[in-house]
Amino acid sequence: MIRHIVFFTAKDPADLPEIRAGLEMLGQIPHSTHFEVGQNIHADTLTGAEVDLVVYVEFPDEAALAAYKAHPIYSRAIARVKPLREMRIAADIPVA
Rank of each mutant, 00 (worst) to 15 (best):
Y56A: 13
T9Y: 00
F59P: 12
Q28D: 14
I93Q: 05
G48I: 08
P13L: 07
A63V: 09
L53R: 04
L46S: 11
M1H: 14
R85V: 15
M25E: 12
S75Y: 07
D12F: 02
A43N: 11
I93N: 06
P13H: 10
V57N: 14
R20W: 01
K82D: 13
D61E: 01
H42T: 13
Q39S: 09
V54G: 08
V51T: 15
E50V: 11
M1G: 14
G48A: 08
V57C: 14
I89C: 06
S75T: 13
I19H: 04
G48P: 09
G27E: 02
F59A: 12
A90R: 12
A49F: 11
D12I: 01
I93D: 00
E62N: 14
E18Q: 12
A67M: 09
D12S: 07
K69R: 15
A66D: 15
H71E: 03
T47M: 10
F8Q: 02
A66P: 01
G38H: 06
Y56Q: 11
L46R: 12
E50R: 12
L16V: 12
H4W: 09
S75I: 00
F35C: 07
L16K: 09
A67Q: 15
H31Y: 11
R85Y: 05
R20T: 06
H34A: 14
R3T: 10
A49W: 08
L23T: 02
L46C: 06
F7K: 01
Y56N: 12
Y56K: 04
P72N: 05
L23A: 03
P94Q: 10
P60G: 14
K69E: 15
A70D: 13
I2Y: 12
G27F: 03
T9V: 00
I41F: 14
Q28L: 09
I73V: 15
P13R: 10
V57Y: 01
D15L: 02
G27Q: 02
E36C: 08
R76F: 00
D92Y: 04
A79I: 05
N40M: 05
G27S: 03
G27R: 01
A63R: 09
V95I: 15
D61P: 00
A79D: 14
D92A: 07
V81A: 01
P60Q: 14
P60T: 15
A96H: 07
I29L: 09
M1L: 12
V37S: 06
E86F: 02
H34Q: 13
I29S: 11
I89P: 00
S32Q: 13
D61S: 00
S32E: 05
L16Y: 04
D61T: 00
R20M: 06
N40G: 05
A90V: 10
T9M: 00
E36F: 01
T33Q: 07
T33I: 10
A63E: 15
